[in-house]
């Protein structure tokens, strides 16, 4: 065991490692949520969920943002700073767009007269809201991180070519992306 770990020691930046542990931790939260969902599903008064079309669009958006953040990282490593800033901004915008689309998607439930919360709501839909909401907060955290990195990139006085912060942010970004894909598949299959 110690052998493996001391191997790692030479390879991985401690902040990156911290992120991986954090990802494990976040995964536990969603594992808790989705297993609660599965337990609930087997009980009475469970409704079938129809996923509105809008969620497909938001899924496409977040997938696209994963590509752009990867390209941004590539640009940074090649020192193409203009491209890098542009791609970073695009990623952040796509992240915000994703959240907006999610909110619109939930608006469509209201249009179908399905209550997500309050009297007459059903736990199956409330779960959808709670889980996606939690995920949205994590995306928002990623957007904040990207904005901070973008501001630092624009600020010439602390000019730095270290790719570590962006690598960490990108890993996190891919993670929330993959997490959404998992949740999306989960919701479409588990209805």
């Amino acid at each position: 065991m110690s052998q493996v770990i001391s191997e790692q020691k030479r390879k991985i930046h401690p902040h990156k490692f911290t992120l991986w542990v954090a990802i494990g931790s976040i995964l536990m939260m969603f594992a808790g949520m989705t297993s609660a969902y599965i337990v609930k599903r087997s009980q009475a008064s469970w409704l079938m969920i129809e996923i509105p079309m809008m969620f497909w669009y938001s899924t496409a958006t977040i997938l696209a943002s994963s590509v752009t953040v990867q390209l941004a990282l590539k640009s940074l490593k090649k020192r193409e700073m203009i491209n890098y800033r542009r791609l970073l901004a695009v990623t952040a915008v796509l992240g915000v767009l994703f959240i907006v689309l999610q909110i619109v998607g939930f608006g469509q439930f209201a249009a179908q007269d399905i209550r997500l919360v309050g009297a007459g709501s059903n736990a199956s839909y409330s779960f959808l809201l709670a889980i996606s909401g939690l995920h949205g907060i994590h995306v928002l955290g990623g957007v904040v991180a990207l904005v901070v990195i973008a501001i630092r990139a624009l600020n010439s006085s602390t000019r730095s070519y270290s790719s570590v912060p962006l690598e960490i942010a990108a890993t996190y970004w891919h993670f929330v992306d993959a997490l959404w894909i998992y949740l999306f598949i989960f919701f479409t299959w588990m209805k």
Binding site: S25, I26, M28, M29, G32
Partner: peptide, 14 residues
């Protein structure tokens, strides 16, 4: 702590 507290958090959110 890292693996169990998040589950409490999800319970508390619900």
């Amino acid at each position: 702590g890292v693996l169990s507290f998040p589950v409490l958090l999800s319970g508390a959110v619900l």
